[in-house]
Amino acid sequence: MMSWVVIVVAGSALLAVHLVLMVACAPLVRGGLVAGVARVGGGEGLPVLARWRLILSCARRHGVRAAGGVEIVPAMALAVALAACLLVPSFALGLPGAGLSDLLTVAGLLVLARLLPLLAALEPGGARAGLAAAGDTAALVVMQAVFPLTVAAAVMATGHGGIDALLTRLREPDMGSGRVSAMLMALALLLAGPDIGPGDEARAAERMVDLGGRGRAAMELARDLMLMAWITLAGDLAWPGGLAMLQEGGLLPAAMSLPGAIVAWLVRTGVICAGIVVARVVVMGSVRGTRGRLVLALLFATLAVVVLFADQEGV
């Protein structure tokens, strides 16, 4: 029986590793997405590390700000995005703070992290940044209809709304239709949550036209962390088998299973990124932005519930 000090220290160390990996991979993921869309769409290839270079160079510069609140809002957005990343399991279940990780809470925190930069864009009073932020706010709020539906699908499939309990239940062998339902939930969340639509990059650049220096760096990193959190959450739901589980009777996952779990997480993230690139180029390129995404997300979230009942009635 391990003493509680060892458990707390080891759990905190695992949590720190999780956070460092998430922060390290987040700009790479967005950089990879942008580069992939450019390359597959027939454009010129971009380096994957470009996002990291941008963030670091912005952080080192003496920046400007056009309004007082812009000094603190990027830091707040980064803090909220980090808190959301702490709640989304990447490679192991049962880390400290897992009791707080509820599907609705994580979605709310990620929406809050996306909303704060919009307020920062509205503060200087510029026309283009303000219009972009106003449009983004309206697009963001209609997506709120999707999250309660995904929570309903999760609770109906597994009986749990907490992410750890939900993923643990999904790994059990009797979850036939539950796994299909979770994959549809993952699709719905990916469509409703992150800013990966056709015009989102351009609008983000317009919103940050008045921002430079460390505020810009924090805002860019917060955007990347949000995308990373959504992709990790969707990957967990789609393939919970890759996560390291708690040992029998213990409070920590087995050390031997961790490298494999990290590799599985990276593979999941890579596959989802490739899927997003293909969807952006092949499907979403012609769909008109938010409306199409909302309809598709609502459809997938409803299908996640329909699949559960279809299986029951088929048996």
Binding site: A59, R60, R61, H62, G63, V64, R65, A66, A67, G68, V70, E71, A75, M76, L78, A79, V80, L82, A83, L86, L87, G97, L100, P124, G125, G126, A127, V209, D210, G212, G213, R214, G215, A217, A218
Partner: peptide
């Protein structure tokens, strides 16, 4: 949790020796 993340951001900002921004008029 939010307070912990905020403290982390503050510590990173201090450790990274970042420079505060200077006020400038908005780009019109």
């Amino acid at each position: 949790l939010l307070a912990l993340a905020g403290a982390l951001v503050l510590a990173l900002s201090r450790l990274g020796n970042t420079v505060p921004s200077r006020p400038a008029p908005a780009w019109m």
